[in-house]
Design a protein around this nucleic acid. Structure first.
Lengths: 155, 155
DNA sequence: GCGGGATAGGTGAACTGTCAACGACCTCGC
DNA sequence: GCGAGGTCGTTGACAGTTCACCTATCCCGC
């Protein structure tokens, strides 16, 4: 018997496969829905959601990136695209010459306010409604466990 | 009280957030690991894994796409890239003039055989080991429930 | 006040995924 | 045998991501 056998047991593999399949299908469907319903990409939605919810529509670049747990480069490209689409604008930061603010434009505010209820409804329809409150709670605890565990692991 | 309230309860939102965060972190770390360890992308790994495991290294294009639940266009682009990298080759299909086979090259076989144990080890380390067998089992059931539920839902 | 390291942010190239449109081929009814 | 509609697979344009590297600025000890 080995402490770390080469393969997974069939139960483990089945569990892993189910999880992966579920997660892929769910995320895929939700992001296609956001795109189709609102014309925004899933990334646009996320950025606007965090930006308006946490920063009231105005946030330092890096704060937003940290909140989303995104790399700055990803943030930078994403904001550039959103500027092009008129959803947000950049603003200089007087206190820090390096810094910048991301600000939701009126169109950005409107877009997220229109998209949010629909998105939430899809989350409920596809995910929340599939589970009892107890199952949902269990899933939350399991997710937190995995997260905590991962944080203790090296890369 | 509304049958379908506009927002999620705080428990529901917390559960959803945990799940999303976990899933993103986990997938992100695993795919960066595959990339760094083997030089293959996560997609390359998946394709080679299914191709060798299910088709013994040779499969019809569409069968492979269905197995992975990928769109044919994605499959097509992916195979094109993998051909360029020497991991697979295309072969014509005599019985069906439209059809084509994807075949793992010797380099492809070697690559997946070298990468698989390491990948499995990371799955174990980051995910399996975080949970008790009971929790893992619970997660599998929950995933299946969500999958079944989604299949009954329209887009 | 100044030099070095850390931090904020940007940029280009390469890669991946999606969407819509397309050509080639098969199949089945007439 | 031929035409309609489906299936197989490709392609091009474009959105998104990552990686490595870059600049400008800030902070802090000396």
């Amino acid at each position: 018997m080995n402490a770390s056998p080469r393969w997974l047991t069939s139960e483990q593999k089945a569990a892993w496969d189910s999880f992966i399949r579920m997660q892929e299908k769910l995320i895929g469907r939700l992001s296609r829905r956001v795109q189709a319903d609102s014309g925004m990409s899933a990334a646009d939605y996320l950025v606007l959601a965090k930006l308006t919810e946490t920063g009231r529509g105005r946030m330092r670049f890096m704060d937003l990136a940290k909140l989303l747990e995104w790399e700055k480069s990803r943030m930078s490209h994403q904001v550039a695209r959103m500027v092009k689409r008129g959803l947000v604008a950049r603003e200089e930061c007087p206190e820090d010459g390096r810094g910048a603010f991301v600000v939701a434009t009126p169109a950005g505010h409107r877009a997220i306010e229109e998209a949010a209820p629909t998105h939430v409804e899809h989350v409920r329809r596809l995910f929340i409604n599939a589970l009892t409150p107890e199952e949902l709670d269990t899933l939350a605890r399991i997710s937190d466990r995995v997260l905590t565990h991962m944080e203790k692991q090296p890369d």
